[in-house]
Design a protein around this nucleic acid. Structure first.
Lengths: 369, 369
DNA sequence: GACGTACGGTGAAACCTTTCAAAGAGCCCG
DNA sequence: CGGGCTCTTTGAAAGGTTTCACCGTACGTC
């Protein structure tokens, strides 16, 4: 994750007005459009055949220098730009790669997307981005349109468990890579992050610091990520020779946001017989809510309560008490996915698993002195 | 901004591990690919001409029902999917729309993008997303590739001031809409948010609450957004019959992040002769840093200092002291841009300007009692 | 029974590029 | 001087779809 924030990044602006201003400029008539020049026009102007023009573009070494220059000048004079559709029709494949994620606006996918895009640009490909919102319908819609476009490859965080249609696509020549999901079959590539390991890291960290009672604010256990992180946490406890059911006090929130986190915190502290001395939140947003609740209850962090989040979102490091969190290599995940997709020949189907990393900050540091 | 956060949105995970795990599954050979079926295959199987198959697909009403069914069955049996390249070649235009933004990973553009995508999906179009990173080179690269693809339209936050190449594109039949930038010429559509107004809103709000000395943490004045917001703030002060130079104490930070904000805050408070009672930060991230600094200095918010940010980013509402902020209609901005692009015929060039909105929260509320 | 009409369906052209066999030009060597 | 060689260039085919002028057929009308 070496990408740095540029000034613009910081200057993003977000606010909302439901009222559209729209003092539109007076109606104006657009100029009539100019005809696009084709390779024929170039050939005509340069006095060569279309085959030669094509060679200048694709195999310049086959063309004599004088001719090459003449053709190039004609291209420049006419402002000729190759027609991608025609090229693709001939080639049978396009330079576009489709990516279907759950939500482009989700900061996780946003970073992943950026990793994908940067790799694709290097390979001179374009990224077609689609949000499925975890809806099977939208996913099917996009799959259809992307198949029509004969995209060169497809990166997808599937909304369905069923990967049959993806395998069909792959057999038809479209490389498929699963994103943030391990492939259930060995015939598809996939890249994912080990959430069990992430939970384990958080648990081990807190246990190392001597915490004997750990509060755990979890989300719906039906969500794979929640289930996996929980499994990791319990694994860490067992590894320390302790009983997860005794050490961990788990509270679940259906809404994985700040309010849900704060509510869960109050539930936890109001009911827990021996109060926990540490808190693990299934993601940073719930952790933020929990921190707010702790402040209201005048429980100091990390003095009275150590807190660990998950995701390491942008604001985690910026809080008054910087938050310890489990970081996932989002950007690299995207890069790796793109790399697998672009790899030629695409005959080996890899299931890559990335390791999360614990970023220790003030919120979980033992008080010195 | 009615889009709600779904659980997945919250479950986003972000952390980074520089070490790739990659215990790849054993090499496996991909199955040989199957030939794609064309409209000819369908015609053959259904015993009709290709023209009829095309009509079934595009003008079903022209085809007798019995024939239509027979053709449809053939299509289903063969798993035929239209070839987009061929269609586009014929039509001269594709179903794809290009969007060149400064950075997909920037939360502002992320939301804008989502607005664009949703509209395009309704119009059965695809979104090709590109990040220019404000680099003229990358922008030119993407412009070239998108032109080759003959995208139906282009949404762009230009890195260059020069819009000549965009006007050329438009004359060649590619609709162009400027994003978050007012068009310098009446020949291009544009959508933008009024940053002057935003600064004005923030200023007026603080003045209304009786603040006579306002600290202003600004970014590089060369940045349009910073300059505009500053202008708005000063305008509000003048409108209240006061002298901006007396009321406003401005500090500039080159880095628009939390650390820059905190540093600027300390500079401000260490030097300001009469201490300000209110603080306006040019964006929320710097405001977050300023809040951190205020906490360190044990200045209470809003008791001793009212604080207003800009952008209304996700975390603004989640802070211990929820932050008053100027919100921009990001999602609607994207929708409006897409609408302008899709409008037929594209002869009127509108310059739409959206209004920002002040979201008042605890950080600027007068202490009651 | 000839004619007009409406309906279904046909087949070829057009869209623009790439590829490839083949032709042409120039040259060397025997 | 002819054969063989290399270096350039050519021209046509192929790729899949849409469009459109046109052809048949069946039916109703005079």
């Amino acid at each position: 994750m070496t990408r740095q924030l540029d000034p613009t990044r910081q200057l993003d602006s977000s606010g909302a007005t439901p009222t559209v201003a729209g003092p539109a400029a007076g109606p104006r008539h657009g100029q009539s459009t100019i005809r696009r020049r084709s390779i024929r026009d170039v050939a005509l102007l340069a006095g060569v055949s279309v085959g030669t023009v094509s060679n200048v573009l694709n195999n310049p070494s086959l063309v004599a220098e004088a001719t090459r220059d003449r053709v190039q000048r004609a291209i420049d004079d006419l402002g000729f730009v190759r027609n991608g559709s025609a090229r693709q029709l001939r080639a049978g494949k396009s330079r576009a790669v489709g990516a279907i994620v759950l939500d482009v606006a989700n900061p996780f996918f946003t970073e992943v997307t950026r990793g994908i895009e940067d790799r694709l640009r290097e390979a001179n490909c374009l990224l077609v981005l689609c949000s499925s919102d975890d809806s099977v319908d939208k996913e099917a819609h996009y799959l259809g349109v992307l198949e029509e476009q004969r995209v060169r490859g497809l990166l997808i965080t599937p909304a369905t468990r069923d990967v049959a249609s993806l395998e069909r696509l792959q057999k038809l020549g479209t490389t498929v890579v699963l994103l943030d999901r391990t492939s259930p079959t060995p015939d598809l590539c996939s890249v994912a992050v080990d959430d069990v390991r992430g939970g384990e890291l958080a648990g081990a960290h807190l246990l190392e610091h001597g915490h004997q009672r750990i509060g755990f604010i979890n989300g719906p256990r039906a969500t794979r990520q929640c289930a996996d992180r929980r499994r990791g946490l319990r694994k860490a406890v067992r590894a320390a020779g302790l009983d997860p059911d005794k050490v961990i006090q788990e509270v679940t929130t259906q809404t994985l946001n700040a309010d849900g986190g704060e509510r869960a915190l109050h539930t936890l502290l109001d009911s827990a017989a021996p109060q926990p001395s540490a808190l693990f939140c299934v993601n940073d947003v719930t952790a933020l809510g929990a921190l707010r609740g702790l402040q209201r209850r005048e429980v100091s962090v990390p003095g009275d309560m150590a807190v660990v989040g998950y995701d390491d979102v942008e604001f985690a490091a910026m809080l008054s008490t910087p938050l310890t969190s489990v970081r996932q290599p989002k950007y690299q995940l995207g890069q790796a996915a793109a790399d697998l997709l672009l790899a030629e020949p695409h005959t080996h189907h890899q299931q890559q698993v990335f390791h999360p990393e614990l970023v220790v900050r003030e919120s979980s540091e033992p008080i010195v002195g």
